Structures are given as C-alpha cells and as structure tokens.
Amino acid sequence: MSITLLASINIQAMQMPPADVEVYELEMRKMAPTIALKGEVVSLQDAVLSAEVDGQLEDILLVGEVVKKGQVIAQLKRDRMDWQVQRAAAELASLRADLVFRRSEVERFRVLASQDNASKTQLERERANAEILEQQIVLAQTNLSEAKRLLADTAIKAPFDGVLAARHAHVGEFIRVGDPLVRLVDTQHKDIVLPTPIQYQHHITQGTSLEVAYRDETLTLPVRYVVPIGDRNSRMIEVRINANSTALLVGDAVTVAVPKAPSSDEPAVPRDALVIRGAQTFVYRVNEAQQAEQVSVNVKFADGDWVVVEGDIKAGDRIIVRGAERLQPNAQVNVKAP
C-alpha cells in the first residue's frame, strides 16, 4: 500500500509543471560562530556644566535646545562683577598716573644730583618708589584680568556642540560655585559600549567590523578600540564600537554579534534555503536534470543572514533559496534569474 502511494506521488510530481525557483550557487565564505551581547549607545562627550562664580541665575536655555560650541547656555547677573572690573580698572589707571609722576621725579633728581644739588640717596629713594609702583601696576593688571575673567564666567558657554539633556537650576535661583546647571550631550559623536567576556578578546581588534542589531535594522560597524583590562568580578572587558555615522540614539540598547572563534572558510547558505520539517533540516539542490534533490544538512552556526551547514553539498552546487517550501524530492523546477 505504501509503495503504491509513493509511486502515485512521484507520478503526480512528474506530471506537474516545473515550479519556479531561485537558486544560490554555493561558495565558501569567511565566517565565525558568534555570541549575541547587549551593548549601550553612549556619547563621547556628556558633561554636567557648573557655575564658576556665585550669582543669581538670570537666564537659562530649555531642555532639548540644540547649541553650538561657545554659545551661551546660562547667564548669571553681571552687576557685581561689572563693579569689580571698574574698580580694578580705576586702581590701575591711578597707579599708572602716579608712575608717570614718579618717573618725572626720578629724572628731576638725577639732573639735580649731577649738579650736586641733591643727594644720591634722594635719587635712589625716588627710583625705588618708581619700581614699587611698577610692581603694583603688574599686580593691578592681574587683578583687572581676574575681574574680567570672573565677569566672563557669569556666562556659562557650551564647550562643544550638543543638546541640553537636563536642567538643574531655574531663573531667579542663587547659584554657588560648582552648582550643576545643565547636562550637555554630544549626539553626533557616539560609541556603543559593549561589555565582552575576556576569552573573546583575541577575536576582536581595532577596526574589526561587527553586526549590530537595532530594532528592525542590522548595521555593520567598526570597533573603535578594545580596552585590554578586565574587570576582576565580571571577567569582562570593554569594547567600543564607532556609531558616529548612524541614527542610533544615546542611551539606547543594541545587540552585537561577537565572534567566538577565528573566522574560516565555511560552506554557507542563506537562511531562506533551509527547509525544516519536524526534526529534519534539509536543502534542495538543483541537479543537471533540473530536478530538486533533497539533501539533509546539519546547522553548525549562523552569522547574520547566513547559515553554515554540514552535509553532502559542495562549492558550486545550486541551492534553492526561493520556492522550496512546497517542493517534493526530485520535482522538476524552472530556475529563474534572481
């Protein structure tokens, strides 16, 4: 009964028109088994900006503002610092005017001393007074520069391009030195921080391309650097992946395929080539008679859209990747161009 049924199925398969299929010519590919690890997108520049002077907060940008390097993010009241600048400038001007007078006195006593109308002691005293004034002027210039710097520090400026991610103060509050004002995040220069088991470090080097799964996308990104220092508790090292050219968001999570062994030439087929029926896994190979031969295979490992398999297949075999779902063994097929 079973032999009759099998013969009937084969006869029906031979009588049916050839099924349209697409094929992939099997080739050896450089592949390696991988492990999926979780990573996080971080900014290369993420800073909490603080006040460098005391003062009342007069203005501050809102969260979400995009700023350029050097742009004012927050402004403290300037009145007190303005007065210090004016006081320092007035003191410097006074000392410079006094120095002009002292130098004229030095010249006058020099002439008198040359005519024996003044003692050399008086001349040296005037010279000393002039030198003291010169040093006082240097100190006054320093005080003026310091006052100007404090005045400039009332404006808190962006040290790099970025986005305001948080605001820690509000207009009207009195701010002390060191009080946090805003968090500024550079959203253009990003890394994926990937904690990786130490035993896999030899398979990852600077420049190695890794596949990163993010939502419904798969990206291929280069390793920026590998930190060759392991954590004694977790036995993990930190791998940094360059994410500058992507639309990944800072703070988001991704999954990265990390190689567990050196890459080698392996027979690989697209995932769509595999046919799984119950406990059996196989592929269909198109032979010279344009028939679909069923070939049992074992899956060694997968790498992205490719699967490394073991079985009676070799490079150059035409493996069906489209249209294999309803095929019967030895069915006639019509190979379509992909």
Score class of each variant (00 low, 15 high):
Asp59Met: 15
Gly39Met: 01
Ala89Ser: 14
Arg149Asn: 02
Val138Glu: 12
Asp82Lys: 12
Glu105Lys: 11
Leu99Met: 06
Gln115Phe: 11
Lys38Ser: 15
Asp46Pro: 02
Glu124Val: 13
Arg108Asp: 01
Lys157Pro: 03
Ile137Lys: 02
Asp82Arg: 12
Leu95Tyr: 12
Phe101Trp: 11
Ala97Phe: 09
Leu76Thr: 01
Leu139Glu: 10
Val48Trp: 00
Leu144Cys: 04
Gly55Gln: 00
Val138Gly: 08
Asp98Arg: 13
Glu107Gln: 10
Ser114Asn: 15
Gln135Leu: 10
Gly55Ile: 00
Ile73Gln: 12
Lys148Gln: 13
Gln75Leu: 13
Met31Gly: 04
Ser104Cys: 06
Ala169Phe: 00
Leu61Pro: 10
Gln135Met: 06
Ser119Lys: 09
Arg108Ser: 01
Glu124Ile: 09
Ile60Asn: 02
Asp79Glu: 12
Asp82Gly: 09
Leu62Cys: 06
Lys77Ala: 07
Lys30Gly: 12
Glu52Thr: 00
Ala166Ser: 11
Asn129Gln: 11
Glu52Asn: 01
Arg29Cys: 03
Asn143Gly: 10
Glu134Thr: 07
Ile137Met: 08
Lys148Cys: 05
Leu95Ile: 08
Leu151Cys: 04
Glu146Leu: 08
Val42Ile: 15
Gln84Glu: 14
Gln115His: 14
Arg102Phe: 05
Glu40Gly: 12
Lys38Glu: 14
Ala90Asp: 09
Leu144Ala: 05
Ala47Gly: 01
Glu107Asn: 13
Asp82Gln: 15
His168Asn: 02
Asp98Ile: 06
Gln45Ile: 14
Val138Trp: 08
Gln71Ser: 13
Arg80Ala: 12
Gln45Arg: 15
Val106Arg: 03
Val67Asn: 09
Ala36Lys: 03
Glu134Trp: 02
Ser50Met: 00
Thr154Lys: 02
Gly70Ser: 06
Leu144Gly: 03
Val53Ile: 01
Arg127Ile: 06
Leu44Ser: 13
Ser43Ala: 15
Leu62Pro: 07
Lys157Leu: 09
Ser43Asp: 10
Glu107Thr: 04
Pro33Trp: 00
Ala47Ser: 07
Met28Val: 01
Gly162Asp: 05
Arg167Ile: 00
Ala93Asn: 15
Met81Cys: 07
Ile35Trp: 01
Ala152Gln: 04
Glu105Ile: 06
Asn117His: 11
Val48Ile: 09
Glu131Leu: 08
Ser114Met: 15
Leu139Cys: 06
Arg167Gly: 00
Gln122Ile: 07
Thr34Pro: 01
Leu123Ala: 10
Arg127Val: 03
Lys38Tyr: 06
Leu62Ala: 14
Arg110Glu: 15
Val138Ala: 14
Glu91Asn: 14
Phe101Met: 14
